[in-house]
């Protein structure tokens, strides 16, 4: 009797734990299966024709990379700075507690609200218009909490002894952080930031409301150019599927390229991350 309930319990929990992995695997294979035929040289390097129902998606690929990279350029230094403060300098007081709460709060704000804000503040308020710059800044607000947290966790995980060793040699606190702590935390910070970049690449709502969605027949150059990213492109042509049949293949292709771009960033960082964490801190990490 007891044996049986033990068996059922373990079996049920086992099945449940498989579900996310099965979902992830199914999603990726579904897109590979349906999207592979849409991928061609022309699709990757061409310009969209007939509102994206034909041709290629080069501008959207470039737009995605441009916006996410610029976003990282803004969010990474601030995130590392804040992470350093929280891990190394922050006293255990009310201000620190408040900062932590606001980091969590910012992480919890729905991206659509950040999009709305970007639209009033950046597009209209600062007069940046629908542009790559507006999109990058709004996205940076969105992933800032992520960059703060990965930096803080990475810095915290550096063993105390390293610091003492350096401080005992007469190095100042900042020198110790720069030469010892950052060096030890770098792999974890870098892979964490890469995962953040993956989030930025995949985000739709924020970018749509700040970088614009007009289909562009040119490659964006200036940060003040407007741009349509891959997720926005996917959303917009997916909306056309109901009306025309030609869009479906393009949509699958776009989804696959988006997923590939995103996986190229995420999978190596996930793997490296687990590897680094295990190497540095054992299985406890």
């Amino acid at each position: 009797m007891r044996r049986r309930s033990e068996f059922i319990a373990e079996g049920l929990t086992w099945i449940a734990s498989l579900i996310p992995a099965i979902l992830a695997g199914a999603i990726i294979s579904f897109l590979l299966f349906n999207g592979a035929s849409a991928i061609s040289w022309r699709f990757i390097t061409g310009f969209p024709e007939r509102g994206g129902l034909e041709g290629g998606i080069l501008p959207a690929i470039i737009g995605s990379i441009y916006i996410s990279a610029l976003c990282m350029l803004i969010a990474a230094p601030i995130g590392i700075g804040a992470g350093t403060y929280l891990a190394e300098y922050a006293p255990d007081n009310l201000f620190t507690k408040i900062v932590r709460f606001f980091v969590e709060l910012l992480a919890g704000i729905p991206s659509i609200v950040i999009g709305l804000f970007g639209y009033v503040f950046l597009v209209h308020g600062l007069g940046l218009g629908f542009s790559i710059l507006s999109g990058a800044i709004a996205l940076a607000f969105m992933i800032l909490p992520w960059t703060v947290r990965v930096s803080e966790e990475a810095i915290r995980a550096v063993p105390r002894d390293y610091r003492y060793a350096s401080l005992a040699l007469g190095a100042s606190k900042w020198k110790t952080i720069r030469n010892v702590v950052y060096a030890a935390a770098r792999p974890a910070i870098m892979t964490g930031l890469m995962l953040g970049l993956g989030k930025a690449v995949g985000e739709t709502a924020v970018v749509m409301m700040t970088a614009g969605m007009g289909i562009t027949g040119y490659i964006p150059v200036s940060p003040l150019d407007s741009a349509r990213t891959l997720p926005v492109h996917l959303y917009l042509i997916a909306g056309e599927i109901a009306n025309t049949s030609e869009g479906l293949k393009m949509a699958y292709g776009t989804a696959l390229v988006l997923l590939a771009l995103f996986l190229m960033v995420s999978i190596p960082s996930l793997m490296l991350r687990n590897y680094f964490i295990r190497r540095l801190y054992g299985d406890a990490g």
Partner: peptide, 26 residues
């Protein structure tokens, strides 16, 4: 565990528009 946990992390980070698209077409 080394298989399941990264796969779970992967699912967190699949872009929501991709999930929505699969919802739409499948």
């Amino acid at each position: 565990k080394n298989l399941i946990e990264p796969a779970t992390q992967l699912l967190v980070s699949i872009p929501s528009v991709v999930l929505g698209f699969i919802g739409l077409v499948f």
